[in-house]
Design a protein around this nucleic acid. Structure first.
Ligand SMILES: NC(=O)c1ccc[n+]([C@@H]2O[C@H](COP(=O)([O-])OP(=O)(O)OC[C@H]3O[C@@H](n4cnc5c(N)ncnc54)[C@H](O)[C@@H]3O)[C@@H](O)[C@H]2O)c1
Ligand SMILES: NC(=O)c1ccc[n+]([C@@H]2O[C@H](COP(=O)([O-])OP(=O)(O)OC[C@H]3O[C@@H](n4cnc5c(N)ncnc54)[C@H](O)[C@@H]3O)[C@@H](O)[C@H]2O)c1
Lengths: 256, 256
DNA sequence: CGCGATTTGTGCACGTCTTCACAAGCGCCT
DNA sequence: AGGCGCTTGTGAAGACGTGCACAAATCGCG
């Protein structure tokens, strides 16, 4: 834990970053590994095996090893992964070595909760600005930050060098806000409004929609209910499949 | 739009539900289609083409058609899909014909926002109970619902026939809350706490983690930055791939 | 110094998802 | 009635993701 010389991560800034292009599925899991690693580090572990880490992250151990191999990270055979080193590696790949500034637009019901959330700061981000269109909200102070008017976005973007915009406005305003964010150079948006945003190429949008999550759960609930209703009657319920193409696996949800 | 006789949906309850087992990816998109369809219906559209609906939902039109074909839904060639009929079909498949009761555990910062959110009710759900462990929160009224102590969960589950549990407690308490939910028969959980939950087989857990979304955005931000830094220098940066196995596609992020 | 226990990294096979491209079907217009 | 344009539904191919199983590498111990 003195000074490591990590292989993939850059010893120098400004040189070739050598970012391997990771599978998207891997990228989506890296934050989970990172959280698990931080827990392990806090618990005093110096190293961890793929088995242990995968259990902590809730994934298959082979998948974890493959994921880590993609970012060229070197574990030690017979030992495992150095926790501190792996944290550094993943944080570098995820671009968390610089603390990115986040602008939160829409300080309503949800926005208040987000503004007061300490999980931003502890996981590599900094809420740099709170913005709203409602004049009665402007000036309010939350968690040491004053709500500013959304029209000040251009100024704020320069002052704070905003990297990520978070939209927590009603759906009707979301596209307009997204346009404003894009106009000031924001290329990453997290959208809480239940609507699709259209943005120019090169801008990434991720969406969090509570109702969608609930509806997916509802589907499985529905399916589970219909399965228990007919324990061994018809087997799998194939409605109107024309040919003889039955499903490959008849039951997988209950077995194993 | 008088009384439709929809082919896949059941005319009778209690009979064989005939739920086709949809690909998981399809299930995850159905709610998006449903939202888009409701928008179209509100705008007065009677029918919609796969092209139009896919645009509204932000997906590829072929994908949409295949998704809809999976649930045996019949559009009309040359015309498109009947909006009202398709809404019925999807709501049936997702199990939204019955309004499911949701119990929200942890009425803190985030929990307050969720409790005050009208997007639950408008999309097929009913917040049936608010629960918290903090005695000073118990008794508080939010949106017409009184916060009850989490120990009352067994009673609440029976009274309201809870279908889905939402966890908005700190991570340290999440596993315990999940266990309690499972103990009273809840088989679907939406978890906002940044931790993995272990639950028995047959229980579905979905997770929403804000920091993960931000970190994924951060990765792409990082990648974009490193790409613009070297416009035509080294092409794709492969670090230490041993053999001659180069990536199949050298550049795909910029082209097209 | 060598051996066995352990754990990583990965080739391979399999399943799932996406996308293209087009035949089949439908309605409208002449 | 017939043809024409439009749209669905789907076969097929390829891209992608997953998981097994094992060789290679490393450490600790005798
Ligand atoms: N509250 C929740 O728990 C929750 C959960 C999931 C999703 N959402 C979604 O998040 C969004 C916000 O929800 P909410 O409950 O906080 O709503 P809200 O009405 O309480 O807050 C919206 C805020 O956005 C501001 N606003 C409106 N137009 C704006 C504009 N053009 N520019 C800047 N600010 C603008 C309003 O002044 C208001 O303060 C909605 O789209 C909602 O569907 C909310
Ligand atoms: N606030 C946000 O915007 C936000 C965003 C994403 C994720 N989260 C996550 O959501 C969770 C809640 O965040 P928060 O900001 O609302 O925290 P909070 O501390 O404000 O609220 C937590 C609530 O849970 C209650 N609680 C604690 N233990 C409990 C138990 N065993 N049973 C029932 N209730 C219990 C507490 O009394 C408190 O009211 C956290 O895990 C957080 O990481 C929050």
């Amino acid at each position: 834990m003195s000074q490591h010389r990590h292989p993939g991560a850059p010893g120098r800034a400004g040189a070739v970053p050598a970012l391997p292009d990771l599978p998207e599925a891997t990228v989506a899991r890296l934050p989970e590994y990172l959280r698990a690693l931080h827990n392990l580090a806090d618990a005093g572990h110096e190293t961890v095996s793929s088995e242990g880490l995968s259990a902590a992250a809730g994934v298959n151990s082979a998948k974890l090893r493959k994921d880590l191999s993609h970012l060229g990270s070197y574990g030690t055979r017979g030992v495992g992964y150095d926790v501190a080193l792996l944290i550094e590696q993943i944080e570098y790949v995820l671009g968390l070595t610089q603390r990115r500034a986040v602008a939160l637009v829409g300080v309503g019901n949800l926005g208040h909760a987000l503004a007061g959330y300490d999980g931003f700061a502890s996981r590599g981000f900094r809420i740099a600005a709170l913005l709203d269109a409602d004049p009665s909200r402007v000036g309010e102070e939350i968690n040491g930050l004053v709500v500013r008017h959304v029209d000040e976005l251009p100024a704020v973007a320069v002052e704070e060098s905003i990297a990520i915009g978070v939209i927590a406005t009603p759906a009707a305003a979301a596209q307009s806000v997204a346009d404003q964010l894009v106009a000031v150079g924001v290329t990453s948006i997290l959208n809480f409004a239940p609507c699709v945003l259209s943005v120019p190429e090169g801008v990434d949008v991720r969406k969090v929609d509570l109702a969608i999550e609930l509806q997916i759960l509802s589907f499985h609930e529905h399916r589970k209910a219909s399965l228990t209703a007919l324990p061994a009657t018809g087997g799998s319920a194939l409605t109107a499949l024309p040919g003889g193409l039955a499903a490959t696996e008849t039951q997988e949800a209950i077995g194993t």
